[in-house]
Nucleic acid binder design. Structure first.
Lengths: 148, 148
DNA sequence: CCAAATGGTTGACAAAGTCAACTAAATGAC
DNA sequence: GTCATTTAGTTGACTTTGTCAACCATTTGG
């Protein structure tokens, strides 16, 4: 393995971290913090789900997650329902209020990326997606292999 | 612009954030925190440089940067020399001690990425680099255009 | 039955980060 | 030259993000 290959991957990671940073630095038009937004997003994708699921998906600390979830419940953004199968666990889901708030955030984040991509031609955007997909595939293949 | 394109870019960003997260979550074998490591890395790349340079390059808060720099100076990791041209500014550089500490961190981070790439064949690694380079080029072209 | 593990909560704290006010130096207008 | 404004960096006070240990209730496994 070539030293330069490692360096190139590290440079790309730094580069893309900056791209992501620009997107994340100011969550658009939203009362939510980044950790909160991440939770909402994951909930919207997988609901109902348990706190444990969020813990693993988001690699968050259980203490911090617990607090944010409690705040969300207090603000009626999420609802909790004790699991019938396991008395220790709760299923979390977005309330109607929560869904509306999430939708607003989602749309605004969408517009951010749109702005980022706008200067590209359609052909360039297609190329971008192609390269992104390929990178993802390369990594996922090996996660699958390593998971065995 | 296609809604699906935006969604795909966002998915890739989330995906790659996880990759980066795995690399960043535990800075290997190092007493340095992530913000500290970022400063060291930037200093190693561009030294001597001013605090203002670090501020801009790293998008850090001037207050926080000032504190970290002060700690580094206290620990003899960096040295400061007042600029002759501008009495308000200091040029920062790594001491010999700082360079050694950075080299250790750099090598360990290098090994982390190596471990990440190890499961890929040489051909796959070359493909990965190719796609990363292309993505970067696509974004950079438009930063250059937008900067005009 | 009971020890160990697990889902989630809470207390206490540290690290990361923010913003305002400040000092000293530089810049620009008059 | 004077003075108002800007800038490089520092410091105080605070918030946000995150951590870890201890805890309680429930489940699991020997």
């Amino acid at each position: 393995m070539d030293h330069d290959q490692i360096r190139a991957v590290r440079e790309f990671s730094r580069f893309y971290t900056n791209i992501i940073g620009l997107l994340n630095q100011h969550l658009p038009e939203s009362p939510f913090t980044l950790p909160e937004a991440r939770i909402l997003y994951e909930l919207n994708q997988h609901q109902p789900c348990t706190a444990s699921h969020l813990l693993e998906s988001l690699s968050m600390d259980r203490g911090y997650l617990s607090r944010i979830v409690a705040q969300f419940e207090k603000k009626k953004i999420i609802a909790r329902k004790r699991s019938k199968e396991d008395g220790r666990a709760y299923f979390l889901s977005l309330t109607a209020t929560g869904k509306k708030m999430f939708a607003r955030l989602d749309a605004a984040t969408h517009r951010q990326v749109e702005t980022l991509l706008k200067p590209m031609t359609e052909a360039q955007r297609k190329k971008l997606l192609h390269h992104m997909g390929e990178i993802r595939t390369l990594f996922i293949q090996h996660q699958a292999d390593n998971g065995k």
